[in-house]
Design a protein around this nucleic acid. Structure first.
Lengths: 337, 337
DNA sequence: AGTGACGATGTGACCGTGCACATACGAGGA
DNA sequence: TCCTCGTATGTGCACGGTCACATCGTCACT
């Protein structure tokens, strides 16, 4: 029966040292896998650690090393499917490497908001930051502010230059558009994402490239907001025009909404109009008609981001990833003209 | 031009003190809003802080106070829509209260995995933990292990007993089933979630309650895994039986897959069979036919979790939330018999 | 035998805070 | 006038690790 009154202080490195009959520094060496430790001594220390159920205090360690063993995620994505999936990949990969992850969700993408978020993460002394801020504006802000903390930004640029990373959006969009062209469509319109999203721009570029190369007419893209609701209204709007036979939509949510809008307006997919989306969200294969779309591996993107970031942090050779491939998933919503 | 060689050490509380001509303790008092500080002194200190761009070192603070100002999220959800949405709510609310959030995603829900995750968060000295582990097993594990850290668990129990919190799943499922009954259906089957998910049980109970009360026959529920793919196979399977006219599905993904399966098997929704889902995911309003479902406010659930947790941490009166209401969204997929 | 290098371990300082206690000063009551 | 009390501020230590340096023994080489 122990004295309940005495505050249960966690055992420290010195408690372990006392029990093992060594100095606290020796314990520290065992914890950090220092080479010059006699196996016998190491065993004694490990025993003591086990007996006391000792766990190193991360705050103390962070204080003295000014390294927190923690990565930060700065996310400026409302809850889009893609980025959210990447976050899971990031967390898993980080955890595997012994890092914790602190997430910071941003609603606004103003320079001030991004700045203060970045400073917040810096205060937490994260060792590195993965930025998921697919907006053009955010990207510039980041470039502009000289952060001393290593960071990798996800899905912001089309190429990978050591600090940014993404699937090959342009190629994916191009493939999707070429698929429609191959089906005999020559009047293909595009519903794009918000103007300041880099991915939206890339997907639009891929669309334009494919059309130009095939000498087909391009249409001014319609700017959406990624939501299914917008897609619906766009569908109703487009129903008045009949100068197209196919639509390439910048993401699946809008594509699904679009098909709904068409349906309500009496336009059949794919008989009257073919539709291709982007992202391959889980329900894309099951909506009616099933949606042709471009698949990309978001979790893998997250894992790569972590590898890139850790290489930077550790000063190792930064791995050069080629752009992540996308895959076209052909389904019912796209059919020959 | 400054000497680049000298390591840029962050300004500490003592640097501020020196510049302001006071003791470090006075600076500390200013930082912590201590009452006995002359306004004049306070101003001097604040000036110095601004000049040096000083920011308190959280690790040092955590070390001495053994409080980290950080909340942990322990999530054992593969990436389901609901929990993911709640996480956003948690983060926002936590951030507003000045807390950081460290997320830990679990793939397995074995007692060992949960235990080690909990210990990991404890090592990070989080002040409290929100657990999103909707599996029955996880719930028991948590109950079993005496964690000294305050925690709130989300979506595990149907009631709210101060440490757990959820929308009223039973009532929601009951409303959905009653809706089908009201449409004249008497043979209603249920596709449930995985056996060890508490929500799956609650939704099933709501379904059973409604049927029993209306004196209608119940069917042994079909156990799914939440995925649209499972729904699809279930649809094909069910197409062979024709002993029902309505299906209440435990989540929207499976419901969408189910409708796909029916479609491929030549069963029309809602003419031949009515379908109602649960969760109201964003595309539910746009699939064909649009899906009747039960809406719940996941982000609000997350916010409440944080309020509950903070009250516990601060030793305040723990707020008693009634169960969060759900709303039935009636759409095309459910029609009169 | 002397010397240098290396392995194994110990000693003390230090990281940046907050806390307990000490101190200085002015106001108010006996 | 002296003592008490409250306000405003300073002093030193503790938190739990790591780092730089010191110590001591052993072994190889000259």
């Amino acid at each position: 029966m122990s004295t309940a009154s005495e505050r249960a202080r966690m055992p420290s490195i010195r408690d372990v040292a006392r029990l093992a009959g060594v100095s606290h520094q020796t314990v520290s060496r065992v914890l950090n896998d220092h080479p010059s430790i006699r196996p016998e001594t190491k065993a004694k220390v490990l025993d003591a650690i086990a007996v006391l159920d000792y766990r190193p205090n991360l705050a103390a360690r962070a204080l003295v090393t000014s390294k927190s063993n923690m990565l930060g995620i700065l996310a400026a994505t409302v809850g889009e499917f893609g980025p959210t999936s990447s976050i899971v990949g990031i967390e898993d990969a980080a955890r595997e490497e012994g890092y914790s992850v602190s997430t910071l969700n941003l609603s606004a993408t103003t320079p001030e908001a991004i700045g203060s978020a970045l400073r917040q993460l810096a205060r937490e002394q994260v060792d590195g930051i993965v930025v998921l801020a697919p907006q053009v504006r955010a990207f510039h802000v980041l470039r502009g502010m000289a952060v001393e903390i290593p960071f990798v930004s996800l899905q912001t640029a089309s190429g990978s230059d050591g600090v940014s990373l993404s699937a090959d959006q342009v190629a994916g969009a191009r493939t999707a558009t070429e698929h429609l062209i191959g089906l005999g469509h020559s009047d293909i319109i595009h519903i794009a994402g918000p103007q300041d999203w880099i991915e939206a721009e890339s997907r639009m570029r891929g669309y334009l490239d494919a059309l130009r190369e095939a000498d087909l007419p391009t249409f001014p893209p319609i700017r959406g907001d990624w939501t299914a609701d917008f897609g619906y209204f766009a569908g109703q709007e487009l129903a008045r025009r009949r100068d197209f036979t196919a639509v390439f939509v910048a993401n699946d949510q809008m594509a699904i909404g679009l098909m709904h809008g068409f349906r309500d307006a009496g336009i059949r997919v794919p008989e009257d109009v073919s539709v291709v989306g982007f992202d391959d969200i889980p329900v894309a294969a099951h909506v009616a008609p099933t949606l042709s779309t471009v698949h990309q591996d978001f979790p893998e993107l997250g894992r790569r981001a972590v590898r890139l970031l850790l290489a930077q942090i550790r000063g190792e050779q930064v791995p050069q990833f080629g752009p992540l491939q996308t895959t076209l998933r052909t389904r019912e919503s796209s059919a020959p003209r």
